Computed example of a mutant assay.
Amino acid sequence: MRSRRCSTKPACRRASDLRNQICQTSRDNGRGRVELSHAIAIVGLGKIARDQHLPTLAASDKLHLAGIVSGHARDEDVPVAATITELKAQVPDLAAVSLCTPPMARTPLIEEALGLGLDVMVEKPPAATVSVAERYSGMARDAGRALYLTWHSREASAVEPAAQWLAGRSLHRMSIAWKEDVRVWHPGQEWIWEPGIGVFDPGVNALSILTRLLPGTELHAATLKYPADREAPIMADLTMAHGKTAIEAAFSFDQRGPQTWTMTLETDDGVAELREGGGRLFIDDAEVAVPEGTEYGRLYARFADMIGTGAIDADLSPFRLVADAFMLGRHERVGAFRWDD
């Protein structure tokens, strides 16, 4: 059962830069304990929002969906508005927004949210370019609001166990195979073929895990394969290094049949393999138990703890490797892409 805490009561007032910290809902969690839940809105109701964000919020004890900003949402169970400002007027206790729009043109949305005193969470990739994404931390800091630029694959269940296993071992070589079918994961979404995206939409997931395991990884060379009728690559081969350790990555957006998301780490004391996008961990071919939970569940739990604190988590190292690939990559043309192939 939920009961509103009115932000106009004296006990709920704080300084303006922290006014949303206590704009919350209380509810019985079913275990005889009342917990506080922040009001959050989804901005952009596309496939990723429906597949991941909405179910995660529905299951959250710390957050609840208070509204949606979308130009095409219909028959939702919460208020829907065309802009964040309009939604804030409908939902005065709104504390935060989660941006699920395509990465282009997010700056005005972030400016609008921060200007309304809202904390901001951003789906990956954070922006269309690194230089734009670099602005966001300063904007949030000036507004005194929390900002979370997310990399959901870092929260896969096997990533932290793999990092702990790797600590104290000498890594000899690492290989990455990240291959999926764009027709399955982004059906008909033409924005995915805008310059600077393409296969790096999934590829940056691998790079986010890589930079968690091996911070400071550098890119040395790349080959990018572009469909004859598209402005973004459908395949990419990357040559990277962490110190003297060679790292090779093969990305594809044209993988038919079983999808492949694996990372293999060869060390002086065994071989680790992350499978299924970091969801499973194998050490010398034997599967190792990993924590339960979901990537987006951990993202939102982290963001809930950030709300009202002014904390900023905005690591751009995976995005910089993408930019480096476009800067250094040799271009090749391949056959035209068809959604209905």
Rank of each mutant, 00 (worst) to 15 (best):
289 A>H: 12
245 T>Q: 09
167 A>C: 10
203 G>Y: 08
195 P>V: 00
17 D>C: 06
82 A>L: 05
74 R>G: 01
144 G>M: 10
333 R>M: 11
139 M>H: 03
143 A>Q: 04
94 L>S: 01
202 P>T: 08
257 G>Q: 04
257 G>D: 03
36 L>H: 13
184 V>K: 00
103 P>Q: 04
266 E>G: 03
130 V>E: 10
296 Y>M: 08
34 V>W: 09
107 T>L: 09
235 M>K: 09
114 L>P: 11
276 E>A: 11
263 M>W: 03
340 D>Q: 01
332 E>T: 09
112 E>K: 06
134 E>H: 06
298 R>N: 07
317 S>N: 03
79 P>S: 01
153 S>H: 07
311 A>G: 03
251 F>N: 02
316 L>D: 04
294 T>Q: 01
165 W>T: 08
289 A>L: 14
289 A>R: 13
276 E>N: 15
109 L>W: 12
112 E>F: 11
1 M>F: 05
80 V>P: 00
80 V>H: 11
278 G>Y: 13
89 A>Y: 01
119 D>Q: 06
39 A>I: 03
151 W>A: 15
2 R>C: 06
191 W>E: 08
302 R>K: 15
296 Y>I: 11
185 W>L: 12
329 G>D: 02
107 T>E: 15
196 G>M: 06
274 L>Y: 02
217 T>W: 06
124 K>G: 13
171 L>H: 12
161 P>S: 11
251 F>E: 04
227 P>Y: 00
316 L>F: 00
31 R>D: 14
228 A>M: 00
136 Y>I: 09
39 A>W: 09
242 H>T: 02
290 V>F: 14
59 A>E: 08
334 V>Y: 00
240 M>V: 01
217 T>L: 02
293 G>K: 04
318 P>D: 07
96 A>G: 11
240 M>L: 15
67 G>K: 05
138 G>Q: 10
269 D>H: 13
40 I>S: 05
275 R>L: 02
26 S>T: 12
199 V>C: 11
129 T>H: 06
80 V>F: 00
42 I>L: 07
217 T>C: 12
119 D>C: 07
323 A>T: 05
3 S>Y: 05
171 L>Q: 13
179 K>P: 01
27 R>P: 00
118 L>S: 08
157 S>A: 15
83 T>K: 08
301 A>W: 14
338 R>A: 15
181 D>A: 03
167 A>E: 13
253 F>H: 02
187 P>I: 00
42 I>M: 13
336 A>K: 05
150 T>F: 08
219 L>N: 02
203 G>K: 09
307 I>N: 14
328 L>E: 06
167 A>N: 13
285 D>F: 08
179 K>Q: 15
119 D>P: 02
335 G>A: 06
333 R>Q: 12
41 A>M: 00
22 I>K: 15
323 A>D: 10
296 Y>P: 01
215 P>S: 07
299 L>S: 15
232 A>E: 03
71 G>C: 04
10 P>G: 06
233 P>C: 01
77 D>V: 02
162 A>G: 08
28 D>Y: 00
239 T>I: 06
